[in-house]
């Protein structure tokens, strides 16, 4: 057993995953090699951290917080539904109605005004006849003056 082999197998040795024969070989090497023994001690301490971290105490307010979060989520869920209904249903309906009103009024405004027959005859009667000035006063008469 050399240091390189030990470095490959050490974690399995510390976790108790190795067969007896291999374990004995590693133990023998660790007794002989102070460098490997120091590394083994270091890794053992680091792996021990998980044991210290396991929570043994129970948070007394945990259930209250879960309950509050659950109620809060439900309110948010309803608010989100209302928001979606407002955005995805009401808004398009409103815009469609506005568009239809706009198009309808545009068509109505664009239509020509109805022709009034009575006023049209009046207009004909009132038209001033074209005045030909040359007939009333010729250019010669104008220049002679």
């Amino acid at each position: 057993m050399n240091c390189k082999t030990l470095h490959k197998e050490l974690i399995f040795f510390l976790e108790g995953d190795l067969p007896l024969e291999k374990r004995e070989q590693l133990e023998a090497h660790l007794n002989e090699c102070p460098d490997c023994a120091a590394f083994a001690a270091d890794i053992k301490k680091t792996l021990q951290v998980t044991e210290n971290e396991k929570s043994t105490e129970v948070n007394p307010f945990f259930y209250t917080r879960v309950k509050a979060k659950l109620e809060n989520n439900e309110t948010q869920h309803i608010a989100a539904f209302e928001n979606v209904f407002l955005r995805k249903v009401l808004q398009p309906v409103l815009f469609s109605i506005l568009l239809i009103i706009g198009v309808y009024s545009g068509i109505k405004i664009g239509q020509p005004a109805p022709v009034n027959v009575f006023s049209s005859t009046q207009f004909d009667q009132e038209t001033v006849p074209y005045l030909n000035e040359m007939e009333t006063e010729s250019i010669e008469t104008f220049l002679m003056e």
């Binding site: 998980t50 929570s55 129970v58 948070n59 945990f62 259930y63 917080r65």
Partner: peptide
């Protein structure tokens, strides 16, 4: 929640390594 709180918090802590996030 009372029965399984420790189980769930520990598992989450093992994954995220932060007590507040795990809770």
């Amino acid at each position: 929640v009372e029965n399984y709180q420790k189980l769930v918090v520990n598992t989450c802590f093992g994954m995220v390594h932060n007590k507040h996030d795990a809770e």
